[in-house]
Design a protein around this nucleic acid. Structure first.
Lengths: 166, 166
DNA sequence: CTTGAAAAGAGCGGCCA
DNA sequence: TGGCCGCTCTTTTCAAG
């Protein structure tokens, strides 16, 4: 996992349609080694998958909701059932167990308020929850799948000596 | 945007490495019309882009944080500056303007607490904020980029008559 | 790692129904 | 619209330096 691998990953997580030749050119490799690196990154699971990112608004899914949940029951069995149930709901794009006052946090995408109400009712009907707080997004300012990879620094070197003008 | 388009999108948002032939086969089309539909979906912006999804843990980015922000200044110019500044921070994967008590919500990915502290200091140093609440994820239960597309229903038909037991 | 090249496969487009 | 059938490009693999 060197600087070249990071460059390859940075390119692919922005645009996975780039050809191997194009990637190789930008990272300073020819096709063969570039292809081998990508194969290795996939085998190692660093590249998890390649997906198409769709526009939610154009698909009528314009409402994003952040849901904070406090659970009542903290037993092992209950938590597993909770995790399985919520994970199976397709409206839930992200689902984290949290530290602190909030036990779980969801990011939910639905068509509109009515659809969210339907989701919400299903959520609280299926499982006993102590507290559920929904926060609604009015505007998406930024949304990316690209991770903040460490920026490959320019190769460290002694300060370049200025060439004599000419 | 018919049921076949939805099927194509459902496949591509799960696995963008599928060949056009493979997709066509699953949706009941041959290559050409399938390819034309995908081209149209891309031209219409329904398919926004294709990306590689990387494993954050394998890249040393194991800490996800949900950040709730209340702003002090609500003037137009300030809000634009705020949006631009925060959008430019690569640790911010998602950034929404919210309804209700919280003005903005971020999902931030960093390496560890120290990296988050550094991010946090930059955030509050750059812009005057009334309140910033950070909630830390302990465990990722689910994370997907796949939108909850309306499930194409099986062709409606009269209720099937139960066959005589045999 | 590089060049070169070849085989297999996929994207792309024309033409017909 | 969808389907058949090529042409072209990419991916993938191999050999040799």
């Amino acid at each position: 996992m060197d600087a070249i691998d990071l460059k390859i990953l940075a390119l692919l997580q922005t645009d996975a349609t780039l050809s191997i030749a194009a990637i190789g050119e930008r990272v300073g490799l020819s096709q063969t080694p570039c292809w081998k690196r990508i194969q290795r990154l996939e085998a190692d699971g660093v590249i998890d998958r390649r997906v198409a990112v769709l526009d939610p608004v154009k698909l009528g899914l314009g409402l994003s909701v952040f849901v904070s949940i406090e659970t009542a029951d903290h037993s092992q069995g209950w938590l597993e059932r909770f995790a399985d149930t919520v994970s199976a709901m397709p409206e839930v794009l992200e689902f984290y167990r949290m530290a602190g006052d909030v036990d779980y946090m969801l990011r939910v995408v639905v068509a509109d308020m009515q659809a969210y109400d339907s989701f919400y009712k299903t959520l609280i009907a299926t499982l006993p929850l102590k507290n559920v707080t929904s926060r609604f997004a009015m505007e998406k300012v930024k949304s990316t799948t690209a991770l903040p990879l460490p920026v490959p620094q320019a190769a460290p070197r002694s300060l370049p000596r200025l060439a004599a003008a000419g």
